[in-house]
Computed example of a mutant assay.
Amino acid sequence: MTLFLVLGFVGLALVLLTLLVGDHLEAAFGGAFNALEGDVFSTAVIGGFVSAFGFGAAAAEGAGLPVLPTLAIGAGSGVVVGWFAWWLTKLVKDGPSDGTVSIGDAVGQVGRVLTPIPGGDSYGVVRVSVGGHVMQCNASALLAIEAGAEVSITGVLSPTAVTVAPVWKPES
């Protein structure tokens, strides 16, 4: 039983190390865990399997079962916990990402003029919120637009400049 408990605690320590230092742990072993590509043999999965194997086998042995059923229960526990660790790792790694906001994402959004836009080839400044990120851009418009007016971003001129048009508000 002592051997199984030691295995359980070693696996638990590996899981804790994985949580604390992540990919640095795999690099410390010289990429040995990367020999088999994929998430199936990550440190989290191996640690979960070893820990569950040890504790499951210790519980079975403590219940007075013979060696073969004890090893089977330990292996079954290890496979279940290892699969769960693999599934959680996959879920986190494949989860959605907002990515980097670019000026092209502002097209179609409504912003507010900070400095007046004279119209023609001259520029003013607008502020627009894109996905929770506030961007300030130089802005050009065909007609003059006063500061404080709402505008719609209609196009991108450069990485720092957009074209805008006033937001139409019907008269009541």
Rank of each mutant, 00 (worst) to 15 (best):
K90M: 14
R112N: 07
A58Q: 02
T70P: 10
S152V: 05
V128F: 05
G155W: 06
R127M: 11
A165N: 00
V156Q: 10
F33W: 14
T160W: 09
M1K: 03
V45A: 13
A57G: 12
L157H: 09
G78F: 03
D94F: 09
A139F: 10
L71W: 12
V80C: 13
A147T: 12
A165C: 00
G47V: 06
Q109K: 10
G119L: 05
D39K: 10
T154M: 01
A141E: 13
L5V: 14
A63F: 05
A13M: 05
T100Y: 04
G82Y: 15
A63E: 00
P159C: 12
L65Q: 01
G131Q: 08
E171A: 04
V134A: 06
G22L: 07
P116K: 14
A57I: 11
V107H: 07
V6E: 00
E37V: 15
G8W: 02
H24T: 09
V15W: 01
V130L: 07
A32F: 03
V50T: 01
V79R: 08
L16C: 05
G56T: 09
V107I: 08
E146R: 14
G120Q: 08
G48K: 01
G104K: 09
V156T: 11
M1V: 08
V107S: 05
F29K: 05
S42H: 04
V151L: 05
W83K: 09
F29M: 15
A75M: 12
G11W: 08
G74R: 10
A147D: 05
T115Y: 13
L91N: 13
W83I: 15
G54W: 04
M1I: 06
L20V: 03
L17R: 01
V164S: 03
V15K: 00
W86I: 04
D105F: 07
L5K: 11
I117H: 10
C137R: 15
T115C: 11
G76S: 10
A106V: 08
W86M: 11
S122W: 11
A58D: 04
G8A: 01
E26A: 14
G131H: 07
I73D: 13
A147G: 10
A147S: 15
G119V: 07
S158Q: 07
R112E: 14
T115L: 14
G108V: 01
E26F: 02
P66N: 09
R127W: 08
T43E: 06
F84E: 05
W86T: 09
A52M: 00
K90C: 10
V151Q: 02
V45K: 02
F29T: 15
I73C: 12
I46E: 03
K169Y: 00
V50I: 04
D39L: 15
V128P: 06
A63N: 00
V107W: 05
A35E: 15
H133W: 02
N34S: 15
L91S: 15
R112L: 10
A72S: 11
A28N: 04
L16Q: 01
L20F: 07
I145S: 11
L36C: 14
L91D: 13
E150K: 07
V134D: 08
G120E: 05
V151D: 04
L114F: 12
L91T: 14
V151I: 04
K93F: 14
T18R: 02
V110H: 00
Y123L: 15
A59M: 03
V164C: 06
G48N: 04
G54I: 03
V81D: 06
S77K: 07
V45L: 03
